[in-house]
Structures are given as C-alpha cells and as structure tokens.
Design a protein around this nucleic acid. Structure first.
Lengths: 205, 205
DNA sequence: CGTGAGTTTGACCAGTCGGTCAAATCAAGA
DNA sequence: TCTTGATTTGACCGACTGGTCAAACTCACG
C-alpha cells in the first residue's frame, strides 16, 4: 500500500536538513567544489552519519536535482493556452521572478549544473524540457498567428524570460553591488512588465 | 624603459597556454572544482612546470580574472553619450552578444565567480562597476528626459542586456538542447533588436 | 665546444577528499 | 527490565589535493 521507504521521524528530519545543507553548499560551489565535510557540518552531522542517510555525495546531488527539475518547470507548464495571451506571459514572467526571489539557492544550483555542462540533467534537457518548450512555443505561435500578440521568435521569447528572471538570483551579488544592497525585485517586476508589454502588445494600425 | 618582466619566448608561449588551459578548466568547474593537475595536463605541462610559471592555483585564477575585468566592461564603456540613443543601445547589446558567441569561456568564468559569491572580484564590483553603471544610467536617463527613448528604469535596462546576452554563453548547453544544436545566435541577434526597439522607440502621440 | 641561465621533471610532503567499518549509543516496545 | 533495531561516531583507508625541491635537461651565446 505504502511506498517502499519506511522512514522514521528522525530519518525524515535528517534527510531534510541534509538536503538543505547540500543545497547551500552545492549551489555555492558546484558539484566538484562542494565537499561532504562541508555539507555534513552545515547540516550539523558527522560525515559518516550523513553517509548513513545518503550512500554518496552524488546521491545527495541527484536527489536535489531531481526534486528541482520537477518544480522548476511548473511555471511554464502553468501557462494556460486558453488564457488571455499577454496576461499569461506576464504572469509567467512574474512567477519565474518570484521563484528567483524565494528560491535563489535552487536557481544557483541549476545554474551551476548547466554551467558545468549539465553532466547530470543533460538527457532531461533533450527530452522533457525540449518537448515542453516546443509545445509552449506552438501555443505562442498560435497567439501570434491570431494577432493577439505581436510576431516574434517564440523560443527566444521563452529564453529571454528564463534569462531575465534567473539573473536576479544567479547574479545577486553583482546586482546588489551595483544597487548598494537595495532589494532589486520591485524594480525588476515593474521593468519586466513594461518590457514584455511593449514587445507583445499589438500596435494600433 | 621596459616593464619589469623579462619574458623569454618560451615564457610568453607557456604563460599563454597555461592561461588558456586555466580558462578551460576554471570556466567549467569554478575555482574550487578545478585542479592544478587538470590545468597542467590541459596545457600539456607537468604540474611542477606549471608552478614554475605561476606561483599558485590562485595566481592563475586572478591573472585570468584581472585580464577579463579589463575587457569585459569595454562594450559598456564604448556606449557613446553623443551618439544616436537607440542605435547606441542596440549596438551595445549586439557587442555583448558577440562576446558571448566569441568568448563563451570568459563569460562562464565570470558567471562562476559571481555564482560563488564573487570572493575575488567583489570589491571591484562595488567600485569600478558601480561607478560605470551609475554613469551610463545617467546618460540613459538623460536620453529619456529628452524624449529620445521611452522612460524605463535605466539600471534594470542594463541588467537586462547583461542577462540576455550572457545567457547565450552561460546556458549554452541548455539552449542547444532545446534548439537541437542549431546556432542560436542569428535568432538571438534578431530577437534582441526587436525587443529593445519596441521597448525604447518613442510612440507616436 | 662550454657554460650558465632558463626550463623541466620525478620524488616527495602534509593535508584533504569520498567513503568504509566495527563498535558504541540510543530509543521504543515486549 | 531487556532486547532489538535505528542511529551515531572515531578510527581508518587509498586516492587525490596544492605545493616543494633538488636534480636534470636544454638552449642560446661566447
């Protein structure tokens, strides 16, 4: 009836703290740059104790990435083909921006994985991600064909949303250096809205 | 008369191959994830031989970042306050995009450094970068005040150019997974032009 | 040719890496 | 209470890390 894993209370608690510690360390140093000692001490455990819950360093990493990939593309999946086009696209951009604000470690973990050549998620990119993007690009193309939004390259439009929103998490240090530590997100929210509105709103003719 | 360093022919050659090898390895794995053995073997040298030319791993890294920081901001410096506003901004975006195409390793090296908290370039960001951005933001603001381009947040505008252009180098693997290995740059060039034209061109009133 | 500076290398070092293991500790039910 | 399984740990392993060093090699130039 139940899933395979038995999971005592201590197990679930420690698994969670280990994953959080792993997220801290992997997102800050990448897979190769992270060490088990770092993760263990961040989690408040000894190294052998950590390895009691995960069989290897890679196991912690893959557990994190598996969790991440499921939720990371949800905002794009949630883009509703039946909705009002511009509102849908703006809402998608805002959702992604809020993910950068609320889950910057996850964004940086993903950025590190891609930067290092996507050794682990590479296959998923070629299958699931590609299929999802192709599908949503078709929806966007349909909206353009119907004259509901202006014509542009739908795939590069999606890329631009990824890049603009994730930038605020991944390059946080740089942005805060320029902005003197002000919170960049209110300004970003407003800018994104204006940017995509002016790109997509059909011109009066 | 000359600079301090004597520099035989062998020295200049080996220094160059070491820096190129270091760029390969550091940009792919970050500072902590890179190893001297990796860099040395990529350069075709033994590890002690590499250390004959650079005193430490960190010395190779800082040499690379110093070189990089000088040239990385040149496109923004080259933005001419006396030029035609929209043409200047579009040209700036194109210059940065071409740097992502022609120097992706440099872009990824920088991305890694920032992702890992900018331990080395942090101070430079707070001084030089901040001053440059402030200055150019003032130029953009002036153009907006004069009605030459539409009003928007000048700093976020600059951020958006950084993010959109560097994305094509840093997330190359992801982009090529979605595009089935097609060259993304022609499409990106076109999309960027359209995006910033529609954002910045003053509307007929 | 020599000869001395410039260059290269094998052997080595102390510290860290991911990971193992047996023994110790803990917790909860009979 | 005793017992049994879950949990934790100290000691340890071989491989690798950044880095040193003295000895060897190479090469231009007198």
């Amino acid at each position: 009836m139940e899933d395979a894993a038995p999971q005592t209370r201590i197990q679930t608690r420690n698994r969670k703290t280990i994953l959080s510690a792993g997220l801290d360390v992997f997102s800050a140093h990448g897979f190769r740059g992270a060490t088990l000692d770092q993760i263990a001490s961040t989690a408040g455990l000894s190294k052998p104790n950590l390895l009691y819950y995960f069989p290897s360093k890679e196991a912690v990493y893959t557990a994190l990435l598996d969790d991440l990939l499921v939720t990371w593309l949800d905002p794009l999946r949630a883009l509703d083909p039946a909705g009002e086009p511009i509102a849908e696209i703006l809402a998608y951009a805002q959702r992604k921006l809020m993910m950068s604000r609320d889950y910057p470690r996850e964004s940086r973990l993903f950025a590190n994985e891609i930067l290092q050549g996507a050794p682990l998620v590479g296959p998923v990119l070629h299958t699931e991600l590609r299929a999802l993007v192709d599908d949503r690009a078709t929806v966007l193309q349909g909206w353009m064909d119907d004259g509901l939004i202006r014509r542009t390259d739908p795939v590069h439009l999606i890329f631009s949303i990824w890049s603009l929103t994730q930038h605020y998490a991944d390059f946080d240090v740089q942005i805060r250096a320029v902005l003197d530590d002000d919170d960049p997100f209110p300004g970003a929210e407003c800018f994104l809205d204006q940017l995509y509105r002016s790109l997509l709103e059909p011109r009066q003719r």
